[in-house]
Amino acid sequence: MNAKGTVFKYGDNVDTDVIIPARYLNSSDPAELAVHCMEDIDADFIHKVKKGDIIVAEKNFGCGSSREHAPIAIKAAGVSCVIAETFARIFYRNAINIGLPIIECPQAAQGIEAGDEVEVDFDSGVITNVTKGTTFQGQAFPEFMQKIIASEGLINYINSK
């Protein structure tokens, strides 16, 4: 499995309240949530994001609430992968569980800038910055996590077992 797209870059501690503000949590419809994705940190995001694009951030991405609406909004906005130095743990679980690929790689978080074209190989964990011609070794997914992502989420995976 691979992801390839243009990068949106953010800093430390991007919290779930800026990923999808609670004022929109009276809906759980992915398409409706996607419209407000990243609204309080980057109002332009939803107007610029294209299918397959990649979010790169620094430490503790997705900190705060347990709302699964956060990875759902990112996935529904068309993002194919999130790369960060570290992820908050509930966000990490939620992203895997709904089938949004995420990968921890501190070097990539430092070596990738907004607008770069980036490719991610989920099997090997290799992240390639096509624009700058650099590569980074991210943490490859354990097999069971790859299966959850391939099944498009935990429930389908449990059903298939």
Partner: peptide, 9 residues
């Protein structure tokens, strides 16, 4: 704390 899918499972 977990998300909704973990809650469902």
């Amino acid at each position: 704390g977990v998300g909704s899918t973990d809650m469902a499972a």
